[in-house]
């Protein structure tokens, strides 16, 4: 940037005029590509409200996405943003975070991007416990390509590539992330936006790999083929199915069938974070070289 030019970050709003999420948006890029009734914008807004709460600096925050409807969010965000390739957002983010541990690194991904093509990178990112916050937008389908089955479509779900009903089970993504070593695991929905915002905020402040599954609705592609139809009905369905972790604890697996367990599901602060342990290794090597 040339001298004398001012940056967006320097234009502080006055105290009387509290910031809105527009602060972090390229509103000139609107209208966005998402369909009416889509939940991806709701989840993105929950992230941005969490960012406002934390006062994330645009210049020190990098948001990385893969390919798909959810990943298009980065095209509207006023941070350093990387719209990478399908399934590989976490691999890009690993390079960014390791090179610059001081950056806040957020990954936005979908159920196809993160759990199918990017599944391998997801489990290894969890295992490394690098301080990256991953928000996986789960809408149970490949929306951008027209409603094909994803790993999260679920048994009996319909999709353009499952015209007779899908006969594969889904992942429990949060249990997957926990088993793979993620040290902060949470789930929210696009109905429970305040809870989701809090979960994302706490995920960002957690020093380690944070995985937040945001269950959301795709009325255009998933809802068209699977009940309930319509965005309002789908949101009501999310509301009815969602159950807090505390309530779920006393329930049998049969009772929990089809329910969405929300809230903070796992947190472990005893595992060393990778950039910190790498820095300690460098320090050790430097000391032994000096001796």
């Amino acid at each position: 940037m040339a001298e004398g030019e001012s940056s967006v970050a320097e234009q502080e709003p006055s105290v009387a005029e509290p910031r809105t999420i527009d602060h972090y948006l390229h509103t000139d890029r609107f209208p966005h590509i998402w369909c009416p009734g889509c939940g991806l914008g709701t989840v993105t807004a929950a992230f941005l409200r969490a960012a406002l709460e934390l006062g994330l600096e645009k210049d020190r925050t990098v948001v990385v996405a893969g390919i798909g409807c959810s990943s298009r969010a980065v095209g509207y965000l006023d941070f350093g943003t990387v719209h990478s390739i399908h399934g590989r957002a976490l691999a890009f983010a690993t390079g960014i975070k390791m090179a610059h541990p001081e950056f806040t690194v957020i990954v936005l991904t979908g159920d196809g991007d993160g759990a199918a093509i990017g599944g391998n990178h997801l489990i290894h990112a969890c295992r490394r416990n690098l301080d990256i916050t991953t928000i996986l937008f789960n809408n149970n389908t490949y929306g951008m390509t027209g409603g094909q089955a994803s790993p999260q479509t679920g048994m009996g779900g319909y999709a353009t590539t499952a015209p007779f009903g899908f006969d594969e089970p889904s992942f429990d993504l949060c249990r997957l992330a926990e088993a793979a070593g993620a040290t902060y695991v949470a789930r929210g929905t696009s109905y429970g936006v305040r809870q989701l915002q809090k979960l994302i905020r706490d995920g960002i402040t957690h020093p380690g790999f944070s995985f937040i599954e945001a269950v959301t609705q795709c009325p255009t592609e998933y809802g068209k083929r699977n009940p309930p139809k319509g965005p309002v009905q789908m949101l009501e369905n999310l509301k009815e199915k969602a159950i807090s972790r505390k309530k779920a604890e006393g329930m049998t697996p049969e009772e929990l069938e089809g329910r969405i367990v929300t809230g903070l599901l796992h947190r472990d602060e005893s595992v060393p974070e990778l950039t910190a342990s790498y820095a300690r290794m460098l320090e050790r090597i430097r000391k032994s070289a000096d001796e």
């Binding site: 990098v62 990385v64 990387v82 990478s84 390739i85 590989r88 691999a91 890009f92 983010a93 690993t94 390079g95 960014i96 390791m98 090179a99 610059h100 950056f103 391998n120 990178h121 290894h124 790498y278 290794m281 460098l282 090597i285 070289a289």
Partner: peptide
């Protein structure tokens, strides 16, 4: 690399390897 303060990463596959290199390059 660690001796000169650099970052070495063994990744889960070659796709992740080059993607991490591009990510670092972008910084």
């Amino acid at each position: 690399l660690p001796a000169v303060g650099g970052v070495f990463m063994q990744m889960e596959d070659e796709i992740a390897s080059i993607c991490a290199c591009i990510g670092a390059s972008l910084t």
